[in-house]
Design a protein around this nucleic acid. Structure first.
Lengths: 256, 256
DNA sequence: GTACGTTGCG
DNA sequence: CGCAACGTAC
């Protein structure tokens, strides 16, 4: 079973690219982030026509997350991250697919640091940890998947010294990521490629993709129960080179 | 010799449509209106690559006119309508091509009526008449061609009663058009099709093209000396049906 | 650099 | 409805 995450940066503007990638890559489950469209403008017709069921949580202009599945039923569990009724940003959707809990997230960017946006990021992470700790405690087969907006280690960025005060690389958020791993969550890409430099995002500016000036932001974390089933993982880096592509590349795992 | 006018409604956004039409229709001379680009952003490279020389007068965001010619030299005469130094709108360009004076115009729309925009339209028409009267007096072979933003008669609009107080159909501007004809200018389309209902514009709204709810705004008027050479005239209506088309259709004549 | 919302214009 | 400009977020 192939499970992927893709920050599309606008699902309607990106539809040709998304459909092409779906066709070529044939994932069973896909988590999308940054739909950038209100609930009623999600292109469900075209997604269905491509063979995928979908659930999604939209929002005008920003954020927005979705889960797609081919030949699997999608049982929605949550469409917000529990713990803050005031939070109106569409950044979390959770479903059960093929007996697994799929937690699709678009974690706040948090820039500029310091400031209220960074504070919001830390508060969001705190709420997220409560949810993930529950999943561990319940010993559920679960997957945390999406755009974490966290660069986990120095290996995951082309020039670490440039990023020390960036909200994506601040010690606070890297520590939070490490704590997830300590709790038992396994970083799939690092499990398969322990030492290799792998990126999932290249800025649109300054020809970052041509210079391979990338960072790793999109992660797929497996609960202890699922980790032994990890067969393979990868990034469809070539998609970033397509015309009119997102600034992220699709990232995926294969479970047996 | 085939001479055409086309209000492109944004020359850069419309470039694929324009180039396709140029290739299929092979006009010798083309007058464009509503370039909607500053002087330096006119796509001269692509136009040249399609085989056309060009002169143009651009303006940021609005208006803008151009004259293109294939296998003919373009001798620019004016790039503003004489008579008002204060007028900064790019609505007029005049050139000599193959011994003919080509006056390419984008006459002000003038809506809403009444108001300062309508007043500007009337003032512009007054200045335009001075120019055209000079051309008649000098007995030059001349062509007034472009988007006149004037519906000449009731035959030229799908539902005349809806347009009585529209600046495109007000008696003041229709009278001005009739006066041009009295001075000796010949409406090419009407010369070839005296009684037929012919449109050159269909609004983007309310599926106007599908309902053929059109109007005739784009005109090609010939000076007395040239009128006997008129062989044919027409509107490339099908172009309005293309994907991402302008709200106007190309309009053309053939001179022998 | 790219996408989306808004505004101005027609 | 659709183009172009501008502001904003990333």
């Amino acid at each position: 079973m192939k499970i992927a995450t893709y920050n599309v940066n606008g699902v309607n503007g990106r539809l040709p690219v998304l459909l092409r990638w779906l066709k070529e890559s044939q994932p069973d489950v896909v988590c999308l982030q940054e739909l950038k469209c209100p609930q009623e403008k999600f292109p469900v017709k075209e997604i269905n026509a491509a063979g995928y069921n979908a659930i999604w949580k939209g929002q005008k202009s920003w954020n927005g997350v979705a889960i797609l599945a081919k030949n699997y039923e999608i049982q929605q569990v949550q469409n917000t991250l529990p713990g803050d009724e005031e939070d109106v940003q569409s950044r979390y959707i959770e479903a059960i697919i093929d007996q697994k809990v799929i937690c699709c997230l678009y974690l706040p960017n948090g820039n500029p640091y310091p400031g209220p946006k960074f504070d919001y990021k830390l508060a969001w992470i705190k709420r997220f940890k409560r949810r993930t700790n529950q999943l561990i405690k319940m010993e559920l087969p679960a997957i945390l998947i999406g755009d974490f907006n966290i660069i986990p280690t120095e290996l995951d960025v082309y020039k670490p010294e440039k990023w020390v005060d960036d909200a994506l690389f601040r010690t606070e958020v890297r520590k939070a990521y490490m704590e997830l791993e300590k709790k038992g969550w396994t970083d799939s890409i690092r499990k398969i490629f322990p030492k290799e430099q792998i990126f999932t995002f290249w800025d649109y500016l300054y020809h970052a993709y041509d210079r391979n000036a990338g960072i790793r932001l999109d992660h797929i974390l497996l609960s202890p129960y699922l980790t032994p089933q990890l067969k393979n993982a990868g990034v469809d880096k070539y998609v970033r080179g397509w015309e009119k592509s997102s600034d992220h590349a699709p990232t995926w795992i294969e479970l047996e």
